[in-house]
């Protein structure tokens, strides 16, 4: 049983490495940058996968472009902005401008509102009860 599990698991790891192995890099840093970039970029077609995990046609092309641009000496920033110009903020898994900013700020606004409300209520209550 253990043996089969081993075979099964190693089969998956083979698939995972096969993707990167197609690309030949000049040094380890380039390969590292490639891996980080394709993990940071979202596949426009499948949308729940990054480029690294996707085998869709567009994802394959975009990976190839990331590779070519790394070899051509482009910086990570240049590569990301190339992608952003064509596919928008969406392609970045961590968008720079938060279009969902309300989700981040909303709870704090509510906290402040609730605290203010509570303080006002508390103050009124105190004044009224001292009147008794």
């Amino acid at each position: 049983m253990k043996f089969f599990t081993f075979i099964f698991v190693s089969f998956f790891s083979l698939i995972a490495t096969a993707n990167v192995a197609i690309f030949k890099f000049e040094n380890e840093l380039q390969e590292k940058r490639f891996k980080v970039l394709v993990a940071e970029l979202r596949c426009p077609t499948c949308q729940n996968q990054n480029l690294a995990d996707s085998n869709s046609m567009v994802a394959e092309d975009l990976k190839q472009i990331v590779y070519e641009q790394i070899i051509a000496g482009k910086t990570d920033e240049q590569i990301l902005s190339f992608m952003k110009q064509r596919y928008g903020e969406f392609i970045l898994y961590e968008p720079e401008i938060q279009s969902n900013i309300i989700l981040w700020v909303g709870p704090f606004i509510f906290l402040v509102l609730a605290l203010t409300g509570f303080l006002i209520w508390y103050k009124n209550n105190k004044v009224e009860s001292s009147d008794d």
Partner: peptide, 11 residues
């Protein structure tokens, strides 16, 4: 498919 990418084509 490179022109497609210039146009932001994804399908």
């Amino acid at each position: 498919g490179r022109l497609g990418i210039e146009f932001g084509v994804y399908g």
